[in-house]
């Protein structure tokens, strides 16, 4: 469905679906982990009067948390959803306002480097996808973004809400066989349309599982005909088929938002 995008939804996608990928990136990617090997800090990104997230950065790894964490090292504020979106879109004029910790130039430089690495992996830069490790990272991070992004889309995007309105309620799980912690879930019909990364809170009503990282990569890069892959057994769909089918189209909206 060709519908306009909503800046509020895009802002939540960046905060709640893209930024959590830093956790997986710093866990799985030695290059990303090395950037903050000796860092012990927390960074808040917030929209003034709007949502906030906190990134706890310790021993090279990031932990993402919703909301405004206690005693942050740095607070990066944006005046509006559009301001944050412009920053994530790479607009140089859209630098955040350092409400606190602006003097921690070293930390901010390293965070910029980490963000650049995330962008490189998520965009599938040639130097990333030229090797198997890079393709694996790209597939994992895209899966996480897509899964977590369903919540923001379900809450605010009209096209997705229209699709979800036709789907049965239920919990859907998306995972890559043989990959640890490469699993996301979305509970359609739950209060707030919950989504998560990791093990779902109960047995999923439908399980979508990619046979291996190669299939997942092809799906995330739109290099595969998914229905043909289901028929060939490369993607397993077990359970409530219409929910998986509808969510697949909802996930397509993410590409429109993130232009990937």
């Amino acid at each position: 469905m060709i519908d306009p995008t909503d800046p509020k939804v895009l802002c939540r996608l960046y905060l709640n679906a893209v930024l959590p990928c830093l956790a997986d990136l710093t866990h799985e990617d030695p290059a990303a982990r090395a950037i903050g090997a000796d860092v012990d800090a927390s960074i808040v990104l917030c929209v003034l009067g709007g949502p906030a997230v906190t990134l706890h950065w310790r021993h090279g790894e990031i932990a993402w948390a919703a909301g405004f964490g206690p005693k942050p090292s740095v607070i990066l504020a944006f005046l509006s959803d559009r301001h944050l979106n412009a920053f994530f879109d790479g607009k140089k004029w859209a630098a955040p306002l350092p409400l606190w910790g602006g003097w921690r130039v070293g930390l901010l430089k390293r965070f910029s480097a980490l963000a650049a690495r995330l962008e490189q992996v998520m965009d599938g830069a040639p130097e990333v996808i030229e090797n198997a490790d890079g393709r694996r990272l790209h597939a994992r991070l895209t899966l996480i973004t897509v899964g977590l992004g369903l919540q923001a889309l379900a809450q605010g995007d009209q096209a997705v809400r229209r699709i979800l309105g036709t789907l049965p309620p239920g919990l859907a799980s998306f995972s890559i066989a043989g990959e640890s912690k490469a699993r996301v879930w979305f509970d359609h019909g739950s209060p707030g349309q919950q989504a998560g990364w990791g093990d779902p809170p109960r047995r999923p009503d439908v399980i979508v599982q990619f046979a291996d990282i190669g299939v997942a990569y092809d799906v995330m890069r739109e290099q595969i005909d998914t229905l043909a892959a289901v028929g060939a057994g490369r993607i397993r769909v077990d359970g409530l088929v219409p929910l998986a089918d509808g969510l697949n189209f909802a996930m397509e909206r993410l590409r429109v938002y993130l232009k990937r």
Binding site: D225, L227, A228, V230, G231, A232, G233, R236, V237, V241, D245
Partner: peptide, 17 residues
């Protein structure tokens, strides 16, 4: 052929395998 088999006869709509 897109989907291999498309429409209502698609394996994805029934029981693949």
């Amino acid at each position: 052929i897109p989907c291999g088999i498309y429409g209502h006869a698609s394996p994805a709509a029934a029981l693949p395998g």
